[in-house]
């Protein structure tokens, strides 16, 4: 049917946290306009970006997401007055924290997509999918999840000695 469609060795898992009023509606519009985009994204609907807890992003990575998208209403358009303003601050801080502990921020995308921006939704999702696909799987959290027990190096002589005596 689509012989030109390239096959990839790796298909990333992308999780999108979106608000119901703008970005979810924007994604709906992409659908009603029959725009096409990669099928890698799974959408989780929230009332507002203000509801999105940073822990969910962490949890998504731990559950094997290779990329995470957070998207909501443009500033000033929030259905709940100011939820997106609070989210903007929260995520500005959180992404700095993730960056500091070594998460590649190319895997974490934030966007404002309005209910009228079906095209922007397609663009954002496609771009993130392609970027993450070229980066390969998010191995850091997956490897971490596979490690059992204390993996800290026994790097002092006295610890080593004590360990060997056990």
């Amino acid at each position: 049917m689509h012989p030109e469609k390239p096959k990839h060795d790796f298909e990333p898992k992308i999780i999108a946290f979106v608000c119901t009023w703008c970005t979810y509606a924007g994604a709906d519009l992409a659908g009603t306009s029959r725009m096409q985009y990669p099928p890698n994204v799974r959408v989780l609907k929230f009332p507002c970006t203000g509801r999105i807890d940073p822990v969910f992003i962490l949890k998504a990575f731990q559950q094997g997401a290779d990329g995470v998208l957070v998207s909501g209403c443009h500033p000033g358009d929030c259905h709940y007055i100011a939820g997106n303003f609070h989210a903007r601050r929260r995520f500005a801080a959180f992404r700095k924290l993730l960056e500091f502990v070594g998460v590649d921020l190319n895997r974490l995308q934030f966007s404002w997509v309005s209910a009228a921006e079906g095209g922007k939704w397609v663009e954002v999702v496609t771009e993130l999918t392609e970027k993450v696909r070229s980066m390969g799987p998010m191995v850091e959290f997956k490897e971490l999840a596979l490690e059992e027990q204390w993996s800290g190096a026994i790097d002092t002589p006295e610890l080593k000695e004590a360990y060997e005596q056990i």
């Binding site: 009332p47 507002c48 203000g50 509801r51 259905h79 709940y80 939820g83 989210a87």
Partner: peptide, 20 residues
Amino acid sequence: GGCGTCQATCPSKSVELDGY
């Protein structure tokens, strides 16, 4: 209003938005 910003802000998650 039902936005849930409170829940994302609450450190102990002692406020919860029904339905979400």
